[in-house]
């Protein structure tokens, strides 16, 4: 079966989320910080009457800390702990796996970003949502 990915960028780095985990991309909603949250979380996104945890950018390889709240877009992915919002500067679109090339990288990366794909000469690191959430819950 040909998988599909949602592609987005933050601070000149590219990321891909499998389409079966992608809920939506939001360019609205109210972002706020929250005291006593775990390291790596930026706060929350209030969207359509729901509270969605918002990831800080330091979990995304190659991106500096502190860009979670200020990013223009939020990419919502489904996890076993409910929806999670990822910060994004730019959304690229949905692309089928057979339109991309697998990229191997010698660079050491977190296990939840072990795969990379190339689409139109840009590299995107593929998020494994299950491994990612395990890293958040049990760092």
């Amino acid at each position: 079966m040909n998988r599909k990915f949602g592609l987005f960028r933050l601070a000149s780095c590219g990321y891909a989320v499998p389409l079966d985990r992608l809920l939506r991309v939001a360019d609205c909603g109210f972002c706020a910080t929250l005291p006593l949250i775990p390291d790596g979380m930026a706060g929350m996104l209030v969207l359509d009457g729901e509270i969605i945890p918002l990831l800080d950018s330091n979990w995304l390889p190659g991106v500096e800390v502190g860009q979670g709240l200020s990013s223009g877009f939020k990419v919502l992915v489904m996890t076993e702990y409910g929806p999670l919002a990822l910060p994004a500067d730019l959304t690229v679109g949905i692309v089928a796996e057979n339109r991309c090339e697998r990229v191997s990288s010698a660079q050491e990366k977190p296990t939840f970003f072990s795969d990379s794909i190339s689409y139109r000469d840009n590299c995107y690191q593929v998020l494994n949502a299950d491994l990612f959430i395990m890293s958040l819950i049990r760092p």
Partner: peptide
């Protein structure tokens, strides 16, 4: 709303719920 699991740090906390009023928490 209960605080989402991903936003709950270990240790002392003096709130368990978030009230939404006029779209703000």
């Amino acid at each position: 709303h209960p605080i989402p699991r991903l936003l709950m740090a270990e240790g002392w906390r003096c709130f368990e719920h978030i009230a939404l009023y006029a779209g703000k928490p």
